[in-house]
């Protein structure tokens, strides 16, 4: 027998095989697309076609629903790993000129003498995101916001590339290196806290997360507290707020003190 004898209604295997398969498909389709949608008393359908579309997962636009009002601005920065990749020498040069106005707080070499963040050798995507957020108002600071508000997109990109280009120098007031606290090494699995280094550079770097070694202890503590209280809210999907809220005050202090005591050359070279 050839396949011509196979695919014919005269062949009982063909009739039974195809018939049964089609019957099961039709019955399950009626069950899944018509019977079960109407079996949900809490959902109202205009007609059968409406129920079928709903069960099939047809995207629907509901006109009457408006996005909830946000009392504060949220970050609108889109970061990908290609953001700011391969800067030109000109861009870095322009950034250097612009950075003169930052030096009063962040230091002429990108190392702060006050408790402002050190920027020398920070990931470009980090500076790019924070400047955008300061400009849009997603992040606010009495000193920083006025500086950021007049920057153009080009200027933000140039500044980011310039600071990323600078060599990573030790902190201005280095302190003796502290041992790693548990919260930094392991996080706290039951509270949903990942090890800091999983995003912040020593194990892996997630785009938009800064490396923290040698930053000011007071600054990091203040930021963690601001995340915990919700005062700072420009983290994507509440990543840092969820972590900071779950941290104890002692853990916040220990993590800030530990990172402040680290030399920047321990940052894993992932870039």
């Amino acid at each position: 027998m050839s396949t011509r004898d196979l695919f014919t209604l005269r062949n009982s295997h063909f009739r039974i095989g195809v018939g049964l398969t089609a019957a099961i498909l039709i019955v399950t389709a009626i069950g899944g697309f018509i019977v079960l949608p109407f079996a949900q008393p809490w959902v109202q359908f205009a007609n059968v076609w409406d129920a079928i579309c709903s069960a099939a997962g047809v995207p629907q636009r509901v006109a009457s629903v408006t996005a909830p009002e946000q009392s504060k601005r949220l970050s609108e920065v889109v970061l990908t790993s290609n953001t700011l990749a391969r800067p030109s020498q000109e861009a870095i040069g322009r950034g250097a000129t612009l950075a003169q106005r930052c030096a009063i707080c962040h230091g002429p070499t990108g190392i702060s003498r006050a408790d402002s963040p050190n920027l020398a050798g920070q990931y470009a995507a980090v500076i790019y995101k924070q400047l955008h957020d300061f400009r849009s108002g997603a992040r606010t600071n009495a000193v920083m916001s006025p500086f950021a508000v007049n920057l153009t997109d080009q200027e933000i990109a140039d500044l980011s590339n310039y600071y990323a280009y600078l060599p990573r120098l030790p902190a201005y007031h280095p302190t003796p290196q502290l041992p790693k606290p548990n919260i930094v090494i392991y996080g706290a699995p039951l509270r949903g806290i990942a090890p800091c280094g999983a995003c912040h550079g020593s194990l892996d770097n997630k785009t938009g997360s800064p490396w923290l070694e040698g930053q000011s202890e007071a600054y990091m503590k203040a930021q963690l507290q601001a995340f915990a209280t919700g005062e700072r809210r420009n983290d994507i999907s509440q990543q840092m707020r969820n972590i900071a809220r779950a941290m104890t005050p002692q853990e916040i202090e220990a993590a800030a003190a530990y990172y402040a005591s680290q030399p920047p050359d321990v940052v894993k070279a992932v870039d």
Binding site: I24, G32, A56
Partner: peptide
């Protein structure tokens, strides 16, 4: 969320088969 419940039901039934 990207798959309709009707298709999930069909797949569930065929899995039983």
């Amino acid at each position: 969320p990207m798959v309709g419940a009707g298709f999930k039901f069909i797949h569930s039934t065929f899995t039983a088969l």
